[in-house]
Amino acid sequence: MTSEQLFQIFLNGITLASVYFLVASGLTLIFGLMRVITMAHGTSYLLGGYFGFSVASATGNWYLAALVAAAIVGILGLIIHQVLIHKFQNDDLRVALITLGVAFIGTDLMAATYGGDAYQVPAPSNWLGTVVLPFAGSYSLQRLIIILISIIIGVALWLLISKTRYGAIVRAGVDDSQMTAATGVNTRVIFASIFLLGSALAGFAGVANGTLFTLLPGQDGTFLLYSLVVVIVGGMGSIPGAALGALLVGLVSQFGLYFAPTYATVFTFALMVIVLAVRPQGIMGKVRL
């Protein structure tokens, strides 16, 4: 392996990590606050991508497409939360199963609408082309832009949670939602807003991934699995944890693809099994199971 190849693979790993981070950050926010896992998160991702494709190819405006996709998927997430999940919030397994049922329905309806073809969200024309980087040689510009966007979103989320009053309420809710409710905070609104935000992030991730790669049926399941792996490895409920988890998973799968492509998938899941066996709460998770 030349050093240029090494940097290329490293950058590819980071690209993948930034997409995984976008999907997983929504999942980790929801889990952190409500202790529930939504198994329909992959469905939100793929649906966002498909909406993004439809809007971008109709209007030619990528930014509008990303915004619309995130908004619609966010609102759908909110509806699912209000109608299906809200009542059972204290029963994590039941919520996981209900949202899994939603995922079955979503997968089937998306397959009926978009079929088995591959779709790619058209990128803004000034994103095309490559830039020459030190050490790595030339690298795709749109990949670098997506990496940048996801870093910005990650930092914004971290600031939102750790520096704002809203974040303080969310963090208080994470620690003890009953006490928080007792202090007069409307936790239902907080829960709903986190669900909206988390789903919107997944929808946006679909647009980002659909721009770099293509959207295919079956990716809803794959991305759900990968985002679960990311949040488990990083530690559930932690934004920096999701970033770290995404980075590890992205790099392991890309270097795996180089050294032993056949077992690339095995490596990724094995990473999670090892982390869970050694540190069940994840690398940056709090000790509370």
């Binding site: 770099l212 693809l257 492509p261 056949t262 690339a264």
Partner: peptide
């Protein structure tokens, strides 16, 4: 040869190898 898993998303690494 690169035998990749079905459903691999990112082929950039394979291309560079």
């Amino acid at each position: 040869a690169s035998w990749v898993p079905v459903g691999t998303t990112d082929y950039a690494t394979v291309l560079s190898s």
